[in-house]
Design a protein around this nucleic acid. Sequence first.
DNA 1: GCATACATCATCCAAAAGGATGATTTTGCG
DNA 2: CGCAAAATCATCCTTTTGGATGATGTATGC
Lengths: 151, 151
Amino acid sequence: MGKHVLLYGLLCGILIAALKLIEYRWLMVEYSVEIYGGLVATVFACLGIWIGLKLTRPPRHTETVVMREVVVPAPANFVRDEARLATLGITPRELKILELIAEGLSNKEIAARAFVSENTVKTHSSRVFDKLGARRRTQAVQLGKEFRLIP
Amino acid sequence: MGKHVLLYGLLCGILIAALKLIEYRWLMVEYSVEIYGGLVATVFACLGIWIGLKLTRPPRHTETVVMREVVVPAPANFVRDEARLATLGITPRELKILELIAEGLSNKEIAARAFVSENTVKTHSSRVFDKLGARRRTQAVQLGKEFRLIP
DNA sequence: GCATACATCATCCAAAAGGATGATTTTGCG
DNA sequence: CGCAAAATCATCCTTTTGGATGATGTATGC
């Protein structure tokens, strides 16, 4: 900011000098005042715009640490779309796996939690991906939420 | 915007009239040119600042509404938790990547959509995983939603 | 001028995920 | 009982993802 003020001062100085010069040369000429005024007006308008822009540029990192604990908008009113579930032909086990995937668990963790082998988890997830038309687990989660199969 | 231009024109008109008046009254007085110039400079500088501020003020409704057939579980009233974003130190770019991950895109697809290399996407995602405390992208999405960083 | 933050890209390596396929066991139902 | 759907597990192979680290360029702040 200090640099800007300095620059501003310098510019003003140069301007004043320039104006003095113009003044001495053109003061006698007709319409000199109008030209002079116009010049001053233009230059200062530009300068003003520049300053305005500088002033409003927000500082990059003004850490306004305001802790604000907000309860997550829990999907309390979640109702599973059983119809869609049926039309897609997704089995209960596959849905369970999808839910666990949505919780951000790895296949290994899901296997541990569901008391099955990791291979089984992979089979279920592959099937559910097929049925959802997903190619990745993140996509499966996205689609699962869209279809209201998982909260 | 049109309103602003009109207002600007009107102001200029009034100003010119005022200047004419001043001119006729004070042109004879000594130092009149200096005073005149100073006045013009001040007024136009203020005007410039005002215009600069107007220009940088983000317009209220720049967002182009694009209809999407995807009707996700109505996050109609989603408000990003900027405070949390700041405390976690997640940068805009990282947030963008997180959003694209949540849409179920692969790193390659994200790279294509964000016009960067896949390596860059991986860097951003790694950073955002670190900051979120996630080990997988599904987990990152889950946490991102919990923290209200993404819809 | 120098330190910092941010964004960008790269390389190497390991772990996880995904696709294809086949086999075995459970379970529900006519 | 016998069948079919569902669930379970495995193997092989490819792709994706994640971790660690370093380099470069560009702003910005002090």
